[in-house]
Design a protein around this nucleic acid. Structure first.
Lengths: 338, 338
DNA sequence: TTGTAAGCGTTATCAT
DNA sequence: ATGATAACGCTTACAA
């Protein structure tokens, strides 16, 4: 059992209030008593009981991080950056992997709120539904603590959104591809989350504004059950066999992008000569295939830094922007020629 | 502000003790009063204050998860599984990414201990140094709470190790390769962590027991700074140019394995015909290259399940095995013919 | 500069 | 079956 301030006060022959003052760096304490107390702590050690502390301060200095699946390559990176930033600001991270089911989520959130976290971070756009009803739980949370959303946007009091401009990123990538002379491009996606919808919007907008005909026939939703790269590649092969031709692929994430590369390889299609491929997230996967995958970088690290900065600001009572949008940018590798 | 048991007791016209009893499911409470209290809770809502609770119970029902970098593909998966298992057992997870520096780690650990976590999980074999001195902090921790180590072994009271048998896995994989007729095999690694050392041991043992000569010349340490796949592939190419020939590669993780595949492709070496490659961890990366990577699976999920089970057992006062070892197994894909 | 004491929201041990 | 009340370890007015 570690010492308490009572033990220390006794040893030092002062009151617990004085010990507390020293511990909290209050200036109003004589240097000699401060020394005496510090000496005792140095000798016997002391780790504050943060539960007790939390009761006094009404704060655990802890932030709840919710994500569907922290082993997802994209979410894992986000969680990591967030934890680092929070740590640097004196906050700890309570991690909670909720899965994708809404009811399960609500339960987890209640649990985590009872831990008296000072704020909540929702990592991933899958937390935002398309109906007000689905998002009710977010409004509830926001009455207790500030809610930060990474990679999606939801407007409500005490809710702050940090995201990348998926519409624009996808619009520009698609435009680049069209301008390079490829207008028959397959759009590959499997998620209809907030950011999933935005990406598709960007693709459609580019196609529309460049007056490309018949692009809707080349929008392919890959079933979510298909997680193996090879299965996805086969799925694309089958799609192509149904008399669909395309000389470009834009994928809503790197995994699908890699699957497209695999499709090309399986069908002896030369990349990038006869098929250009663009992925999304600029993850570690981009380096795994040959040729290496061109991908859209969404500046995740900058986003997380901004998110934590905003959160810390909110917690200290400052006015903070409710929506911060980061531009994405195309990282050109070997699956494209432009 | 959410209700407290005081508010509820007032509304119900009973004492806080009774409310507490209802909340904790004590049997010794009349059904009618229980109902009255439940009704009030249903109407107004109630989220227990777990800091206060922790003070009474001397437990936060929280486990500290330490890992160097939760965005690492292997560690992320471990963290995810651990969180899920802990959640299922009524514990929350305080995540702490410590980096690889020892001093930084010690600080984090003190901090996390002050949060009164009920146990500590060290994820990744990089937490175990090779000297008693380096591991002193683990012994210190173990005096306060049970310490669980995933993927490494350290024997001490109140310390429990769950790991896969890296020596044997590597021994068997190497043996398989030798038996298939390939004895000039390049061993690729970049980490000298506990498990890194064990893997290398397994490789050496296999080489020794099959009386392969000169294998030491084909053990290649890739500089840790090299993180890009292509850089690693180039590094291998340069090594090969220094008059080293090999027809097999065994890598200490999938990333290095993929780099080896890339090396083959860059140098027009046919895989698996002229070069066999085996990776380690059986991660998502294995599906990203073509041909897909044969890899050693270390049963991470089973390990995490066992770890949490052991931890829960320890916390409830049971005697638990201090060391649990899981066998690994080779998952054959397309970079090997055997 | 220092001490006293109230308060934070629970749990748990007594009585009744 | 229920109620008082101490205890948990800390912060923070308010007094001295």
């Amino acid at each position: 059992m570690s010492l308490t301030i009572y033990d220390i006060s006794e040893k030092a022959g002062v009151s617990i209030a004085t010990v507390s003052r020293v511990l909290n760096g209050s200036t109003k304490v004589k240097e000699s008593t401060r020394q005496k107390i510090m000496d005792i702590i140095d000798e016997f050690g002391y780790t504050p009981n943060s539960s007790a502390r939390a009761m006094g301060l009404k704060s655990m200095k802890t932030i709840g991080i919710l994500c569907a699946d922290s082993s997802d390559i994209f979410l894992a990176k986000a969680v990591y950056f967030l934890e680092q930033n929070l740590q640097a600001n004196g906050y700890e991270s309570l991690l909670c992997c909720t899965g994708y089911n809404l009811d399960v989520r609500r339960n987890y959130i209640n649990l985590i709120l009872s831990k008296k976290v000072d704020g909540l971070i929702l990592v991933g756009s899958n937390f935002i539904g398309s109906t007000e009803e689905e998002n009710a739980y977010i409004r509830d949370c926001s009455e207790k603590v500030p809610v930060m959303i990474l990679n999606a946007s939801y407007h409500h009091e005490n809710v702050y959104s940090i995201l990348s401009d998926d519409v624009n990123s996808m619009y520009r990538a698609t435009t680049d591809m069209i301008n390079s002379g490829i207008s028959d491009v397959l759009y590959l996606y499997n998620s209809t989350s907030y950011s999933g919808r935005k990406k598709l919007d960007g693709f459609r907008m580019a196609m529309e504004s460049h007056k490309v005909k018949g692009y809707e026939d080349l929008i392919l939703k890959v079933p979510e059950e298909l997680t193996e790269m090879e299965s996805i590649a086969n799925y694309i092969t089958n799609f192509a066999k149904e008399d669909h031709t395309f000389h470009g692929v834009i994928a809503s994430d790197d995994q699908l992008g890699i699957a497209a590369v695999k499709y090309g390889q399986q069908n002896q299609i030369s990349i990038p000569k006869d098929l250009s491929v663009i992925g999304y997230n600029n993850s570690i996967l981009t380096g795994c295939c040959t040729p290496e995958l061109t991908s859209i970088d969404n500046q995740l690290e900058a986003q997380t830094r901004s998110l934590v900065k905003t959160l810390i600001g909110v917690l200290s009572g400052q006015d903070m922007p409710q929506k911060t949008v980061f531009p994405g940018n195309l990282v050109r590798r070997k699956t494209t020629e432009f």
